[in-house]
Design a protein around this nucleic acid. Structure first.
Lengths: 184, 184
DNA sequence: ATGAAAGTTGAACCGTGTTTCAACTTGCGA
DNA sequence: TCGCAAGTTGAAACACGGTTCAACTTTCAT
C-alpha cells in the first residue's frame, strides 16, 4: 500500500497521468498487477488519493513556518522560501497537483481555494492589526490572495522545478515588491 | 481544416486531451474520420497546432492594449483587464494552454518564457525611465515578471474562468498593490 | 466532355492498458 | 500441526480509440 503509493507518485510525476500504466506502477512497487486492485478501485481513485495526500503535505510543510517571522510579510517570505525548497525537492508532487486540474478537478479546486482562503485570512488579520495598509478592502485581499498564490506557483515552477535557484533570494526579491510596491 | 480546428478547440476545451476522441472531433466538425488525417499527422500534432495558435491569439489580443495607459503600471492594469475578459470569453483556450504543460511541454514553456521575457523587458525599460523604483535589479525584475504572470493566470482562473467577476475591478485592485505595495 | 489529381469516406485493423478472477501463498489462532 | 482468513498473483478478458487505406466523389484544366 505504502509501496504502491510511493511508486505511483514517482511514476505519475515522471510520466504524467495518461502515460503511466498500472503495470508500471506495480512493477516499480515490486508487487503483482492484481494487488493494485485490492487497495484501489481504479487508476483515477489512486490519483485522487495521491492528490489529497500531496496537498496535505504541502500544507504541513509550509504551514508551521508561517508562524515565524517579524511581521506578516516576513512570515510570507519565509513561507515562500520553504515552498520553493519543497518544490525543488518534490518536483513530482508539484506536477501531480498541477495535473489534478484535469484528472481530479474537484481536488484541484479544493486545494487552491483552501490555500487562498488561508492567505486572505492572514492578511485580513494583519490589516486589522495595522501591519498592512488599512485601506485595503476584503475584496482587495481576496484578489491579493489569488494573485500571491499564483505568483508563488509560477515562481516555484520557474525557479525551483525548472531550474533550482536560491530560494531565499527569490523569496526576498518577491516579498520586497509585495511590501513596498514597484514605485518609490 | 478550419472546421476541424474549431471543433478540436471546443472538444479539447470541454473534455480535456485524453477524453476527447478524434471521432468526436470529426463528428462535431461534420467530416469523416479519415479526413482528419489528411490535415494532421496525429492527435498530438493537432493539439500542438492548437496551442501555438491560441498562444498567439492571447498575445495578439493583449499586446496592443499594453501600448495604452498613463504609465507602466497603468498599461499593465489595462493589459490584465483585457486578459481577464479574454479568459472569460475563451475558457476553452485557457484550458488548452494549461493542459499543454502535460501534452506539449515545449509549447507550454515557450509560451510562458516568451511572455515573462516581455514583461521583464517592459519593466526594465520603465525602471530606466524612472517610472518604477530604480533600485530594482534585473534579477528582481525577472522574479517580478514570473510572479506577475502567475498572479495574472490565477486571477484569470478564479475570477474569469470559474466565476466571471468584473475584470476592471479585479485588475484595479491587483495593480494598486503592485504599485504601492501592502504597507503604508 | 474527359480524365487525372485532389479530396473525402468509414470499416477494419491494431496496439495498448485497464480490470477481472480463480488459483495460490502466507500469516496466525486454536 | 491444522485450517481458515487474508493477501497476492498474473494470465486472460475486455474496452477503447488512434491510425490505415482502398474505394469513392469532386474539382478543374484541357
Amino acid at each position: 500500500m505504502r509501496k504502491i503509493l510511493d511508486a505511483a507518485r514517482e511514476e505519475f510525476g515522471a510520466r504524467g497521468f495518461s502515460d503511466t500504466s498500472i503495470v508500471g506502477i506495480t512493477q516499480r512497487a515490486g508487487v503483482a498487477l492484481g494487488t493494485f486492485y485490492t487497495y484501489f478501485e481504479s487508476k483515477e481513485s489512486l490519483f485522487q488519493a495521491l492528490v489529497r495526500d500531496m496537498s496535505a503535505q504541502v500544507r504541513d510543510t509550509v504551514g508551521p513556518i508561517l508562524a515565524q517571522g517579524n511581521d506578516r510579510l516576513d512570515s510570507e517570505r519565509l513561507g515562500l522560501s520553504a515552498f520553493l525548497r519543497f518544490a525543488r525537492d518534490h518536483r513530482d508532487i508539484y506536477r501531480i497537483i498541477d495535473e489534478s486540474e484535469f484528472v481530479d478537478p474537484v481536488a484541484y479546486r479544493e486545494h487552491y481555494e483552501t490555500t487562498a482562503m488561508r492567505i486572505a485570512a492572514r492578511f485580513r488579520r494583519a490589516r486589522d492589526n495595522g501591519e498592512v495598509d488599512a485601506s485595503l478592502s476584503d475584496h482587495d485581499l481576496d484578489v491579493l490572495a489569488w494573485g500571491m498564490m499564483g505568483a508563488n506557483v509560477f515562481l516555484g515552477l520557474r525557479f525551483s522545478v525548472w531550474d533550482d535557484q536560491d530560494s531565499d533570494k527569490v523569496a526576498e526579491a518577491m516579498t520586497r515588491i509585495w511590501r513596498r510596491g514597484l514605485t518609490r
